[in-house]
Design a protein around this nucleic acid. Structure first.
Length: 487
RNA sequence: GGCCCGUUGGUCAAUCGGCUAAGACGUCGCCCUUUCACGGCGGAGAGACGAGUUCAACUCUCGUACGGGUCACCA
């Protein structure tokens, strides 16, 4: 049988990495088995609808490299793929269940339900009391005739227990008394999420239901529906949750379900911070799943190839920005020059960097940045010379002091003025100078670089900094440096 | 609170009864060095706890603790 999985997000305008990972695993499950991946938009909640939210879903999937075979935008044989366009579809199914005695009309008002709930004792949680479950036929007719609004509820078994199999968690058994008579059709005639979900999954031929573990305990209700209709129950793959680390007001580190308080948790938030889509996908693929070997870097195709349900873990995992950062750096290091320059260009442009320096910058930056957004900050010194303190010239490890710096700059400046402004030439010149003075390279290089950059840390060394500045600017800064030292 | 699920270093994780318990991130140290990095080498660091089953338990069973999820006319 051909595998069919689906991603069924609600258009809320925000794509959480947890949702994205669910989509990823659904996609991988389908692709690994040569099956189809379907996108279905669950927009039955009119109140929560956000304009443009579906576009964010499309954009996220596209950027992430997760392509769907069927969906609202690409069509398919099982459409429509937007729930609001399928509204007429659900009620007949519910009516069928009512006719067969597997569901019933419930006329209880929200007020009655509310009163029921508030009658519960401290700490107690009670469900629906099944007041309308066995209403006499005449009473039902009378209420219908009187136009009393009603919902349709599922008749859940009262005793015994339900067991089902999940590919990740194994056999799960839930006492039937835990199962509420859940609402299938709301008073406004719209289906509830759970009901629509089952109808849609079945009518769309979904074979593998991949979703978060928060559905683990409500799955028997879904199964009861499948059974009531005589439909085949899909294969279940429940995923462990993704957690976030944060620090509470007492300074204690707390771990809880990933949310906004943990910083950027939206896919596009991460993109904006400079994380590459491939790195994000690679990282979240490994959150809750591990391959059979110890590989860590996976392209999407490699993920499809290696993905295996057996590798999915049961316990929740904490989203670790440090590791994502590392992985992002790995992706940057693996980039071709073209890719690197393309990604860096927006930042170069902001600094007014000319193309002749691209190759040099790539060499300097590639092993040093973990995100492209760091470029501007790393090259800040090119924009203007900082008003630095001369204590910068003192460096313990290099044994550089104010005096050696004065010597170095005094000797280096005239030589550099005569120098052919080329990287190797500058390096050679400075090294020769050090050799002739019988000092370590650092004694010369350190002060020259400090004077040129005005900051202690620069990507790349002394010669590179000089080249990037250009001869005029570089020499101007060196002279300023010398004056500062002599003052 | 009921029910369900989980628990291997700070984090991600391997292990499917043989463990001297992988690997990665992070962290620390050393080397390299023209700063910071990169790179190389090395270190510290783990089975929640208690019983039981077994020749043997991280692995199976039970209990306890802790964590999470769930109990809507939300999705």
């Amino acid at each position: 049988m051909k595998i069919r999985t689906r991603f069924a997000p609600s258009p809320t305008g925000f794509m959480h990495v947890g949702n994205l990972r669910t989509a990823l695993y659904e996609y991988l499950t389908a692709r690994h088995g040569g099956g189809s991946f379907i996108l279905r938009i669950e927009d039955t909640d009119r109140e929560r609808y956000v304009e443009g939210a579906t576009d964010i879903i499309y954009k996220t999937l596209e950027t992430a490299g997760i392509s769907h075979d069927e969906g609202p935008d690409v069509g398919g044989d099982y459409g429509p793929y937007v729930q609001s366009e399928r509204l007429g579809l659900y009620k007949p199914y519910a009516e069928q269940l009512v006719k067969e005695g597997k569901a019933y009309r419930c006329f209880c008002s929200k007020e009655r339900l509310e009163a029921l709930r508030s009658s519960a004792k401290e700490g107690e949680v009670i469900g629906y009391d099944r007041h309308c479950r066995d209403l006499p036929e005449e009473e039902i007719e009378a209420k219908l005739a009187a136009g009393v609004p009603y919902v349709i509820r599922q008749k859940s078994p009262l005793t015994g227990e339900s067991t089902y199999h999940d590919c990740v968690y194994g056999d799960i058994t839930i006492p039937n008394e835990e199962l509420d008579d859940q609402i299938l059709i709301k008073a406004d005639g719209y289906p509830t999420y759970n009901f629509a979900n089952v109808i849609d999954d079945h009518t769309m031929g979904i074979t593998h239901v991949v979703r978060g573990s928060e559905y683990l305990s409500s799955t028997p209700k879904y199964n009861a529906l499948y059974e009531a209709f005589g439909w085949e129950i899909p294969t279940y793959i429940h995923l462990p949750l993704i957690m976030g680390k944060s620090v509470d007001e007492n300074g204690e580190t707390v771990v809880s379900k990933l949310s906004k308080r943990h910083g950027s948790t939206g896919f596009f938030d991460l993109i904006e911070e400079g994380f590459l889509p491939e790195a994000i996908i690679n990282y979240i693929a490994l959150l809750g799943w591990a391959p059979a070997d110890t590989r860590e870097i996976f392209s999407m195709d490699e993920l499809i190839e290696a993905f295996d349900i057996n590798g999915i873990s049961k316990s929740p995992s904490v989203f670790d920005y440090d590791k994502l950062e590392w992985m992002n750096a790995e992706y940057i290091k693996a980039m071709s020059s073209e890719e690197f320059n393309e990604n860096a260009k927006p930042y170069y442009d902001r600094l007014g960097i000319k193309e002749e320096h691209y190759a040099l910058l790539e060499e300097m930056l590639k092993p040093r940045i973990t995100r492209f957004t760091q470029i501007e900050e790393k090259l800040e010194f090119l924009k203007s010379l900082a008003d630095y303190d001369i204590s910068l010239y003192e460096h313990k490890k290099s044994k550089s002091t104010r005096e050696t710096s004065i010597d170095a700059l005094t000797a280096a400046i005239p030589l550099l003025e005569e120098c052919n402004w080329e990287r190797d030439a500058i390096t050679e010149l400075l090294m020769n100078l050090a050799a002739s003075k019988e000092v370590k390279n650092a004694i010369i290089m350190w002060p020259v670089r400090i004077a040129a950059a005005g900051v202690a840390v620069t990507p790349g060394g002394c010669s590179e900094v000089l080249i990037l500045l250009g001869k005029d600017e570089a020499l101007r800064r060196l002279k300023i440096g010398l004056e500062k030292l002599q003052a």
